[in-house]
């Protein structure tokens, strides 16, 4: 049986700067992989390579056994299967919450208006925003915007969702509503690749945690291993710094 997602020694540089230096990892269906690391460690680039918003220089990426880095891959089809949630939400400014979710259903999946609306409402309810369906992004709080962003990704029925620091742009008091939705998704069996600084979420929801530094995986394993029993100095130092800044990760 193939893993759902396989990264096989992925390399990426921007000019002289090597951002990813031979990153390999496997994810099974239902896995929640949390990637942590200092800024500039290549976490966001890693995510964007998976749905090919960024092209890699060397290595291979497979989704469900298909080589997505093959030149003849239809990137639009690939992105149907890989949802993405952005740090700055990137909601379509001219569409209501509902319109943000239906746009992909209608224009990418070719659904009819009624069907798309029904499905979109389902996902807005799922993230607790059924009552805000007609609000425009400018009328929503940051936490609400991000939940619409999650609903937009969910609606495409993706095999995998990428979360690119989904709570970094939020005021502290709004973070909880987003991580709560993410936790629900995780326990519902969604496969998620998450870049975040939310250590509480990582400890409670991650099945595997990866510490990325200078484009390399320093350590990868269950969250308890990295938080409590890490043998790597770099991991320990990073995690103690990040928990001091972003709150205690102890349950």
């Amino acid at each position: 049986m193939n893993p759902l997602l396989r990264l096989d020694s992925v390399y990426k540089s921007y000019g002289d700067e090597e951002v990813l230096r031979g990153v390999s990892l496997d994810m099974e269906v239902g896995d929640v992989e949390v990637v942590v690391g200092p800024s500039g460690s290549g976490k966001s680039t890693l995510l964007r390579c998976v749905n090919r918003l960024t092209e890699i220089d060397d290595g291979d990426i497979y989704l469900d056994g298909d080589r997505v880095t093959a030149p003849d891959t239809d990137v639009n089809e690939l992105r149907r299967d890989v949802g993405m949630v952005f740090q700055d939400f990137n909601l379509f400014a001219h569409k209501t919450a509902l319109g943000n979710v239906t746009l992909g259903l209608r224009r990418v999946r070719g659904m009819g208006k009624v069907e798309a609306r029904e499905k979109a409402m389902e996902h807005l309810d799922q993230v607790g925003l059924g009552d805000q369906a007609d609000s425009y992004p400018a009328e929503l709080s940051g936490g609400q915007k991000q939940r619409v962003g999650i609903a937009r990704a969910l609606a495409m029925d993706p095999k995998l969702i990428l979360f690119d620091e989904p709570t970094s742009a939020l005021d502290p008091e709004l973070i909880g509503e987003v991580t709560e939705v993410m936790r629900d998704l995780a326990s519902g069996g969604m496969t998620m690749l998450v870049v975040t600084h939310e250590m509480t979420f990582a400890r409670e929801a991650a099945s595997t945690m990866t510490f990325l530094d200078q484009g390399e995986i320093v350590e990868r394993g269950p969250p308890e291993q990295l938080f409590d029993r890490s043998e790597r100095k770099r991991t320990r130092e990073f995690l103690s710094r990040i928990t001091a800044r972003h709150g205690d990760a102890q349950p």
């Binding site: 749905n51 918003l53 990137v75 639009n76 089809e77 690939l78 992105r79 149907r80 949802g83 993405m84 952005f86 700055d88 990137n90 909601l91 379509f92 400014a93 746009l103 992909g104 224009r107 990418v108 937009r152 990704a153 495409m156």
Partner: peptide
């Protein structure tokens, strides 16, 4: 620009 990125991310050409 991020608007077009988001559109591409849900699979629009």
């Amino acid at each position: 620009e991020s608007q077009l990125t988001a559109a591409r991310a849900i699979g629009l050409s």
